[in-house]
Write a protein that binds this DNA or RNA. Structure first.
Length: 468
DNA sequence: ATGTGC
């Protein structure tokens, strides 16, 4: 399929809808020539599968971090009309509201470096990591329902974070329309003991330092003022809760596909008509996972603040540990976009894709050994990518291949040589997440900045990291 | 990503 890509400008490649039967619209990929070379054929084919779905709006978009995923690549966005389109549990994926919180400090690199060997183990013991990890919270069923329907409003009322965190979170940390009655009891049972846990895989808690400020005015507005300023990044999702919601509705939507006679090129693209019960129930349940995940990250943010207080002997307010921004990159949203000159409500499916609305922060995580970025969204993203950008560097190698190729202790040593303190539940996690298993984040960022769908504001590099 | 295959 890749050989059918037509380059239409420096950063845009297209797949015409006649490259295979049944495509309703064309697909496009935003990437430099160098990045296109890193994309595997199977992922490109997955983009064309999505272009076959009912009500899909042109174009299906692949982003420069794209790599093969369940049904659709990670690093892709697709939109469907709100009349006869579909809404899909498969297109959103398993880790609903996997996302990132960026928290600033007024600490300098030197101040943090002195304490990093104390800080990382302290954070590691405060924030539960790993698959199946359980948190310190024990939520009753009623409390969990409050989290699911009220998100960060519950968090702040219960001492996790402040109004400022709410104001600096996508959807103000509470997406409207979340309905806990649409969530299975199994999902709730899995979710209740996991609030305030990091999880595993590519999820992390990282201490970072600023290396570059590209847009001083915007950076200052977001509280990033100095090179060598220290920031914190938390990347994780909705844990077993969102995973179970996705699993439940994949089954329901697989049945819906047959019931409504939808032709699918790949059964992993389970979906349901937007106006069907199977479509709207999923939407309402998925939103519960969105609120759960926002809350999960803010709970941990507050524990991180308390840990910094102990290590540095100052209050977190005094250290200016405010949320720069918090957002999700695995989600379905009903948004208004301009389609062929007309304002229309569409169901935007972002899978490994960050919202990039004009002027708003876009948080992009690199790997444990490479840079992360804060960028800002643009008008061009509204026109080109349904207001969306990448989510990270994007894997270049499967988890399985990475575990076979790298050895965790060696990865740790290499990080130490680069001045990065890493701690994980198991060395295997470090092998799985070896920086070499990912694309070069600088190349990915160059593609989105060059394409103009998000513009560089701040570059960060890791000092210390906690992994599942 | 995930009580890490069905």
């Amino acid at each position: 399929m890749k050989e059918k890509l037509k380059q239409v400008s420096e950063y845009v490649w297209e797949l015409d809808k006649n490259v295979r039967p049944k495509m309703r619209v064309k697909a496009k990929i935003i990437a430099s020539k160098k990045v296109v070379e890193t994309i595997d054929d199977a992922a490109v084919e997955q983009l064309t599968n999505v272009a076959c779905l009912p009500g899909v709006i042109e174009p299906v978009v692949g982003l420069p971090d794209m790599h093969w995923g369940y049904g659709l690549p990670m690093g892709a966005v697709s939109a469907f009309n709100a009349e006869d389109g579909i809404i899909s549990a498969g297109l959103c994926g398993f880790d609903i509201n996997c996302g990132i919180n960026s928290i600033r400090t007024n600490l300098t690199y030197d101040e943090a470096r002195e304490k990093i060997k104390e800080l990382i183990p302290a954070l590691f013991s405060v924030v539960p990591c790993g698959v199946g990890s359980r948190g310190k919270l024990r939520l009753s069923p009623n409390q969990l329902d409050e989290v699911l329907s009220r998100g960060l409003n519950w968090a702040v009322e219960n001492g996790y974070g402040t109004k400022n965190d709410i104001e600096h979170t996508e959807e103000n940390g509470c997406i409207k329309g979340a309905d806990p009655s649409k969530v299975s009891s199994l999902a709730k049972r899995r979710g209740a003991p996991q609030l305030g846990t990091l999880g595993a895989g590519n999820h992390f808690l990282e201490i970072q330092r600023v290396t570059d400020i590209f847009d001083e005015e915007t950076a200052r507005k977001w509280g990033v003022v100095d090179k060598d300023q220290v920031l914190i990044m938390i990347h994780c999702g909705s844990r077993g809760f969102g995973h179970q919601v996705a699993t439940d509705y994949l089954k329901i939507q697989e049945r819906a596909v047959r019931k409504y006679g939808i032709w699918l090129p790949d059964r992993q693209l389970a979906c349901a008509p937007v106006k069907s019960k199977e479509g709207q129930d999923y939407f309402a349940a998925m939103k519960c996972a969105v609120n759960y995940s926002f809350t999960n990250r803010l709970v941990m943010t507050q524990w991180v603040r308390e840990t910094f207080e102990k290590v540095f002997g100052r209050s977190w307010e005094d250290m200016d540990m405010q949320t720069v921004y918090a957002l999700c990159h695995n989600v379905v949203k009903l948004e208004e976009h301009t389609i062929n000159g007309e304002r229309r409500k569409v169901y935007v499916h972002r899978k490994g894709s960050t919202r990039a609305f004009p002027g708003l922060p876009v948080l992009i995580a690199g790997t444990m050994g490479t840079a992360s970025y804060i960028l800002k969204g643009t008008e061009k993203a509204m026109r080109e990518t349904f207001g969306s950008s990448v989510h990270g560097a994007g894997r270049a190698m499967s988890r399985h291949a990475a575990i076979k190729k790298y050895w965790g202790e060696k990865v740790k040593q290499e990080l130490t040589q680069k001045g990065i303190t890493a701690k994980s539940t198991h060395p295997k996690i470090l092998a799985e997440e070896a920086p070499q298993a990912y694309k070069d984040v600088e190349m990915v960022i160059e593609s989105i900045h060059g394409a103009g769908i998000s513009l560089k504001v701040v570059r960060l590099i890791p000092m210390g990291v906690c992994k599942g």
